[in-house]
Computed example of a mutant assay.
Amino acid sequence: MIVAGIGSRRGVSAEDVLAALDAALERAALARGDIDLMATPAVKGGEAGISEAAAKLGLPLVLVPQTRMEAASSRTRTRSERVVALLHVPSAAETAALAAAGAQASLLGPRLALGPVTCALARREEAA
C-alpha cells in the first residue's frame, strides 16, 4: 500500500496538489495508479484543493488526527520550523503519510516541496 501525504498552505488548488503529487511520484518512479489513498492533517480537512485532487484521482482522503500525526513524527526525514510551530510535527506531508499507512510504514524518500504544496510517499508492505 502506498499513501500520498499532502501538506499545504491555505487556499491551494487541486492543480497545485496534483503537480506536487506527480513530481513526488516521478522521483519515486511510480504512477498515479500506484497510490492507494491520500492523507492530510485533519486541520486541512477544509482545504478544497486537497479534497478535489483526491476526488479527481478517485482516491479516499484520510484526515489524520493530531494524536496520530504526533505518534508518527519520530519517523520523518525532514523538519520545517513553520510546520512545527503550526502543527507540532516536523513535516505535515511526511507525518500524514506515515500515520495513514500504519506503524510499520516507511517513507519512500523525503517530502517534496513544490510551490505551496508538499508531498511525501509512504509504503506499508502488505502481509503475505
Rank of each mutant, 00 (worst) to 15 (best):
18 L>E: 13
67 T>Y: 13
10 R>L: 04
56 K>V: 12
56 K>C: 12
46 G>Q: 07
63 L>M: 02
46 G>Y: 07
23 A>V: 15
19 A>R: 13
55 A>D: 10
8 S>D: 09
21 L>R: 09
61 L>V: 06
25 L>S: 04
32 R>W: 02
9 R>C: 06
27 R>L: 14
30 L>D: 04
19 A>T: 09
58 G>S: 01
31 A>M: 15
63 L>V: 00
17 V>K: 06
40 T>R: 05
29 A>T: 14
36 D>Y: 08
44 K>D: 01
58 G>H: 07
33 G>P: 11
9 R>H: 11
36 D>F: 00
41 P>G: 00
26 E>I: 13
54 A>W: 07
23 A>P: 08
45 G>W: 00
53 A>Q: 08
52 E>V: 04
51 S>N: 15
34 D>M: 02
45 G>S: 04
35 I>G: 00
17 V>H: 10
46 G>H: 05
45 G>Y: 09
66 Q>K: 08
42 A>F: 01
64 V>F: 03
46 G>T: 07
27 R>E: 13
40 T>Q: 02
51 S>T: 14
14 A>R: 09
31 A>V: 14
25 L>P: 04
11 G>I: 03
61 L>H: 07
36 D>C: 11
41 P>V: 03
13 S>Y: 03
43 V>D: 11
67 T>Q: 15
12 V>S: 02
20 A>W: 03
68 R>F: 15
40 T>E: 06
53 A>T: 01
41 P>C: 05
17 V>N: 10
51 S>F: 11
13 S>N: 08
25 L>Q: 05
39 A>H: 01
16 D>G: 04
68 R>Q: 15
30 L>E: 04
21 L>G: 02
42 A>T: 02
48 A>M: 03
56 K>Y: 11
23 A>I: 11
25 L>A: 13
49 G>V: 01
15 E>C: 13
67 T>G: 15
30 L>K: 03
66 Q>V: 06
26 E>S: 14
19 A>G: 00
35 I>S: 02
60 P>M: 08
55 A>Y: 10
45 G>V: 07
61 L>G: 08
34 D>N: 09
10 R>C: 07
38 M>A: 09
37 L>G: 00
39 A>D: 07
22 D>E: 13
33 G>F: 05
28 A>Q: 05
29 A>N: 14
36 D>P: 05
35 I>T: 09
